[in-house]
Nucleic acid binder design. Sequence first.
DNA 1: CCGTGTGATATAGAAAAGTAGATCAAATGA
DNA 2: TCATTTGATCTACTTTTCTATATCACACGG
Lengths: 194, 194
Amino acid sequence: MSYGTEHLAARLKAAREAKRLSQRELSALAGVPQSHISKIENNAVDLRVSSLSSIAHALDLELMLVPRKALPAIQSIVRSVSSAPVINAATQREIDRIREKVDALASHASSASIDNLQRRIREITQIPSQLDPDILQKVRRTLESIESSGSNEAVNRAVENIRSLRNQLAHRASSQETPRAPRPAYRLEEDQDG
Amino acid sequence: MSYGTEHLAARLKAAREAKRLSQRELSALAGVPQSHISKIENNAVDLRVSSLSSIAHALDLELMLVPRKALPAIQSIVRSVSSAPVINAATQREIDRIREKVDALASHASSASIDNLQRRIREITQIPSQLDPDILQKVRRTLESIESSGSNEAVNRAVENIRSLRNQLAHRASSQETPRAPRPAYRLEEDQDG
DNA sequence: CCGTGTGATATAGAAAAGTAGATCAAATGA
DNA sequence: TCATTTGATCTACTTTTCTATATCACACGG
């Protein structure tokens, strides 16, 4: 099932997650069955332009045909426009350090647990709430303990760590705002996919 | 047959014409039947993303999902990148004046002949050859004679006029270059579509 | 006027998308 | 522990693309 359009599927999924919508919610917005959205995100269908378009619109995205040679410039613009929300410098720096650690860990020895960890980290950086640098520092320390011990146990502990943090943040965010108010687009994560 | 994707169809057609490819030639490049390309350009199908993608690639275009709020900036980039080829200032000015005339004519009284005229004008500005300002001036004079007389006869004479000019240019161009050498992308015309 | 190239159209059939709807295991929160 | 929500995955059915191929009217140049 390769249609040469894998990046589109990934892009849609990333955009949906950045908006913190479930597939069913997006389904309602776009008028497309949840089962179909699942297939689309997993690149299991060669979808029609109308489907792509309606889903994209529900995610505040626009389908465009751009000249090859304009690609770099455009990608740069997209990056700058859909970057992470206001966040203070210390927090951003802490996030960057964590990402480095995780990437290092991943390149050293890839495993399902580490993939999981990477996903969690990405999720966290997409949460609109202001992140507490102290908490992030704690996360980093956990990561560093993994580096020294190298045990899979430690990785799983870190994942658990981050997951509960994420849940806290998500909860805090949803209780502060209108249940499903459209939020601005946050980091779309395609710049650290590979 | 409205799929909310009319602009894509128009874009593909414009891109193909800017490259001076026939539907059959594009068909060969993209691996899609000419009959299908015709339907696509006429917005008679809700095509699949893989089809759109392969045709786009054959035309040096890339399919992208861009954030709504990045649209203006991106469109500006696209315009600047896919602008008309080197052409001297006098010629460009003459072309602009002709376009104005035709637009005025079109808004005054629309007819099939005038639509035809508009298309011809657009075609001419896409031809890679250097246009002779003198010839263009002659075209404008013809247009002005239409303005005063208002006869449909005159319009048709102008169309004939321009058509032969176009054929001359096309012929000159194709005899100068490798039969179907890939040419740089010229003006994509979507900025004066409506 | 005649041959060629153009885009639009038709036919028939194979392949796939798309629909509504149910179910499932896993994660989560209470 | 229990109910809910998540995404993935089925079924059965309809609709449509897409392909290959041929034909059409028309514009064009020789």
